[in-house]
Design a protein around this nucleic acid. Structure first.
Lengths: 183, 183
DNA sequence: TTCTTTTCCTAACATAGGTTAACGGTACTT
DNA sequence: AAGTACCGTTAACCTATGTTAGGAAAAGAA
């Protein structure tokens, strides 16, 4: 069984954690994503910007989460996404060299990595399924249940963007929900 | 470098390929997904059914594709999805025991598997991003470009279901597109 | 062939969600 | 304290998509 603290300690033995002020970009479209970020403190988001200039949040990463553009990192393609800190944060920036070396010294980490990949797939598949089958209101309720902790830390417009809604629409959803509860 | 033929041959040395008539269910909600299917011939779909009874296609798998509920297979959860043949098909049904054994004899396969997982993530992430940022028409055009081969093999209602549309809406999208082309 | 089922299209209507614009509140700046 | 930027709400209106219903063509079954 692998403990994440082993990774953190191995990293901190050689490097110091990266301090990131809020609103700082850690990755932009066109760049290669050459680090997997592990969030020690703070909150990071992973998002795209479409041709009309609208932002779409694919993922939030609070403490204890990994955040990376796996396509860019693994296939060595330039990224189409942004990674940005939403709060003052503290992250480990794991590059390929470090990860390879760490795998060699910690063979349990290989299996742990496998779990991370499968979690990622589970999460994404669940999102696709929700986007295909649930209404805005249902998606919002699910989000609140799954990430109650995130709701209070990011502006509502970003939650709307995660849910595939205009901010005004999320406002409407919330109003309808509070009316229902009053009854 | 790993060649898929090695996997196929190893499987066929011990088992014969599974012949599947069209419209046969290979997995249903509530069951454990204990096989990864590799499609030799035919066409398979992976879909869910929501509370209103509407189907939502998450993936099509023609020849040369793998299809599996990774969450169910890896985490040993019961599945929420269906896997169904759309055409008379021929598949390899790879169970965990076979895959484990095969990994031991073919160490390159471990890396190949890693590629498969990352491809899966890339594919799903791209879908989430498209569902968040593109119109029905744009999603349809992308689908045609990406899977021209599938378009002609499945009923339009299933493509609509993959795109997150009602069949009638896809019909409308197609009519608008053909009008545009005429001009 | 004839009958049946499936598939696709169309049109009229209904609705969820997007758009625009305005307002009030809060928090940060100066 | 005044000024400014950001945020969430609301309302009126608009548009894309869903819904219902019907019908015609194509594909399969008897």
């Amino acid at each position: 069984m692998f403990e994440i603290t082993a990774l953190i300690e191995a990293y901190l033995a050689k490097n110091s954690a990266r301090q990131v002020p809020a609103k700082k970009l850690l990755l932009s479209p066109g760049e290669y994503c050459d680090h997997t970020f592990y969030v020690l403190k703070g909150l990071i988001r992973y998002f795209s910007v479409d041709t009309k200039g609208n932002e779409h949040v694919l993922q939030f990463a609070p403490e204890g989460w990994f955040i990376v553009d796996r396509e860019s990192m693994f296939f060595k393609n330039t990224s189409n996404f942004f990674i940005e800190s939403l709060e003052d944060s503290e992250v480990l920036a794991l590059n390929e060299e470090f990860l390879k070396g760490f795998c060699q010294n910690h063979t349990e980490f290989v299996e742990f990595n496998n779990i991370l990949l499968h979690n990622h797939i589970r999460h994404l598949q669940n999102r696709v399924n929700e986007l295909l089958s649930l209404s805005a209101e249902e998606r919002y309720l699910n989000f609140m249940k799954l990430y109650p902790n995130i709701i209070s830390r990011v502006p509502q417009s970003m939650i709307a963007s995660y849910l595939g809604l205009a901010p005004e629409s999320l406002s409407r959803v919330r109003r309808n929900l509070s009316r229902k509860k009053l009854k």
